Every structure is written in structure tokens, then in C-alpha cells.
Simulated scan of single mutants.
Amino acid sequence: MKFSVLSAALALTPAVMADWKISKNREIEYSSVEGFFLQDNTTTDATTFDYADWNFGLLNRTYTSDPKRKTIKPKGRKPYKAPWPKGYTTQWERFEKYVEHLNKKAPKDTQYKVLVMGRHGEGFHNAAETYYGTPAWNCYWSEQTGNATVTWQDALLTEAGLEEAYKANAYFEERFEQYGMPYFESYYTSPLARCVITARETFANLDLPKSHRFLPVVKESFRESISIHTCDHRSNKTYISTLFSKLRFEKGFAETDELWTGTKGETTEHQLARSKDILDDVFTSDDATWISVTSHSGEISKLLTTLNHRTFKLSTGQIIPVLVKAKQVSIEPTSTYASWSTEATCNAPPVTSISGQGCVCSTSTTLASTSATATAA
């Protein structure tokens, strides 16, 4: 189903078309190509899976693009396969060749990209939710800018969150240098500080080729679901630019947050629509095949839904790669939907906060159920 046009504030600037032209009366349909990563498999448990234990989940398998290896039969010894030729030695190298093969053989209306999506490390908002409990967090505390100890509006990373980014940094370095993982050609990040910092600490100090330098682009629509939580209220562009000197911003990126109001949150349909739009923007304006995206659990979940990937919720610091097939199809009729909804909450700390039952406001306040199940992301 194609969604109706987003609000003017979220409308993307016209994409500068790269090599891929979208034909008239056509749109892009996305699908995740299964069978290449453990995360594709429904038996892989997202709650216990750690990318660092499993080579980012890349499966050991053969590909149709693999070169034929001769069987060597030495006299007096068992036959064995000849070694892989240079450039096909590691699983990552062979997978890279396979993706190249897919794009070379694909018709003009189809292309393939590998999106490696990482959730930011633990932020102070995540720690605060753990401290207060999810019901109380959603009832009251998430609407505050912080407490007497910490600030969680546009939260920074905790020490644990920084450690998660350092872990990713070391793991990427090892995969690039020892396992033949392809270097990223493009880097994108949410504008929220926790993502910019995670991307910076993950990639900025790696010894990358000049042709694959870490020059991240901030895109508004890679941000988390826009709720009344202050952790979803991004800082201004001037502040964000101080987080990393080589940060770049998409065309039209506003100085101040024009989307967060503190009273209304976007609907699921609205977030799905902007997730589709940002993918369309990337696929039509960026001819890179290997792309890094640093985002949030909620937004990555919506991106996975748009890619028709199985549900796979990431904990902080976790990473998921997806082989994406994008194909032009006939435009479907549009449907209308509510973009924003009011989110009421307690005006004071709740009387009780019980997991699974929600929170109870004081007698002078009222809680709307719309905020009862959200989590800091």
C-alpha cells in the first residue's frame, strides 16, 4: 500500500538522481533477500543474538558467483579442492562478489544494496527508563528533560553506551582488515545526538581508504519515532554540527526541530511512510551498494517492516545487515491516514508503576493509554 504524501515539514527535498531513474507511474517496492544472514532466520532470537559472536550474522555458504575450484588429486593423498583465488578467499569477499553479480545481472528496474543498520549505544534516557520502570517512564518521567542527576533530552551516551560503540569500532576494524568485509561507501545517521556520537565513536578513528572515508550525512527521517518524550526532541543544527567536525547535513535540514511538539506523537502509519520515503531518497540519490545507517530501535524496526524483513528488535549497540532488493512496480492507489495523535500523560510522578499493568496517576492527573507501552529507543 502506498501512503499519502507526508506533512510539508517532513517532505524530503527532491533527490538528485544518480544512475537509477524511476520510470513514470512507477514506485519502488522493497524486499529483503533471505538466506544470507542469521537474522533472516525465524529461529534466531533477537533478544540473545550478538552480532560480534557471529560475523555480523553472515552465513557460511556458497554463491552462484563463486569461481569453480578444481579438484586436485595428488598421488598417494586424498583429493582436495584448490584454494580460493585472490579476492574470493573470505566469506565477506565472496558475498561482495555475489552482490556485484546480482547488480550486474539485474534489469534496469531493479537494484541491490547492503544496508548495515546499527542502533545507538545506551543513552541516559535508556538508563532512566530502567531506573524508573517503563510504566512510570512513559507516564511522566520521559516528558521531563532530566532529573537532578542527568539530562535525557536528546540524550547523550552513558559510559555503557560508549563501550558499546567502542566494541563496534574494534569489531569493524577486525572485519575490515582481517575478514575482507567491504568498506562502506556511504554513512547516514539520525540527527539525534546519541546516534551521531555512536557513529563517530564507531567509525571516525578507523584506518579507512581515502575512497571510503567516514563522512556521515545527517538525515532527518532516520530519527526515532516522534513522540512527546523529550529524548525524541533533537537539538539544533548548530549544536549537532559540534559533535563531529566532518558531519554533513542533507539539503534543507532545519536549524531547529520543526517536528517535535511535546504534545503530539506521530502515528505508526506516518513513521512507516517516512521510512519508505527515506529509503526511496537513498536508493534514488546514492549509487553506493554498501551503506551504513546509525539509527534507533523503533526506526530500524520500521525500516525492516518497509523492507519486508522479519521482525528483529535490536538492543542498544546491536547491528543488523540486510541484503535489499529494490524493484520498480506500478504505483498503487494512495490511502489516507492520521499522521499525528495527542498523547496525554501524568502531570506529576505516578502513584504506582507496575510492569505489565501500567502506572496510576495521582487523583489530580489523568493518563491516556496511548503512552503506556512505548519504550525509550
Rank of each mutant, 00 (worst) to 15 (best):
E250T: 13
L156K: 08
Y188W: 11
A15H: 03
N60R: 06
T363W: 06
K327A: 02
A368C: 02
I278Q: 01
Q178Y: 02
W340K: 15
V116C: 08
T151K: 11
P83I: 04
D257L: 07
S335A: 07
S235I: 05
K24T: 15
Y112K: 05
S32P: 03
K327S: 01
K302M: 05
M181I: 12
Y132K: 15
K167Q: 02
L6N: 10
Y337G: 01
F222P: 09
N60C: 15
E129T: 10
H309T: 14
L38W: 00
A18R: 09
S186C: 03
H101F: 05
T151S: 13
A273P: 14
R77H: 14
V360L: 15
P349E: 09
T43I: 13
S335K: 11
W260N: 15
A377G: 13
Y98R: 06
T242I: 09
I22R: 00
D207N: 10
E122H: 06
R119P: 11
L58Y: 09
W260Y: 14
L304N: 15
W137F: 00
F214Y: 14
R69N: 13
F249N: 04
F95K: 00
E258T: 11
H296T: 03
P79S: 00
G123N: 03
A368N: 04
C139A: 06
R274N: 00
I354L: 14
K68G: 04
S7L: 08
W340E: 14
K24P: 14
V150A: 14
T149I: 14
M117Q: 04
T230C: 12
G356E: 08
K73H: 11
Q144Y: 08
P216W: 03
L192E: 01
T43H: 08
A128E: 13
L12K: 06
M1V: 14
Y132D: 06
R310N: 02
T268N: 07
V33W: 12
A160C: 02
Y51T: 15
K86P: 02
P209W: 02
V360I: 12
F312V: 14
F184M: 05
S186E: 08
S315L: 00
I22C: 08
V351K: 11
K86W: 04
S7V: 01
D277Q: 10
F283M: 13
R175C: 12
T375N: 00
Q39R: 00
K313P: 15
N103R: 02
D232H: 01
T267M: 10
K327C: 11
V33A: 03
P191K: 01
R175D: 02
K97M: 12
S65I: 06
N25I: 02
I331S: 10
A254V: 13
Y30S: 09
L247T: 10
A155Q: 08
T42A: 14
D109S: 13
E159G: 03
F312L: 12
T149A: 15
G161T: 05
D280E: 11
Y30A: 07
S364R: 08
E266M: 10
Q271S: 13
D154I: 04
N205Q: 12
R26Q: 07
F244V: 03
A168P: 05
E27R: 05
P135G: 04
T230P: 00
P67N: 07
R234P: 04
L12Q: 09
A170P: 04
P67R: 04
D281N: 10
E266P: 15
P350W: 09
P74E: 00
L59R: 01
A165H: 02
C346M: 09
L58V: 10
S221W: 10
Y51H: 12
A348F: 12
T71I: 15
K251G: 00
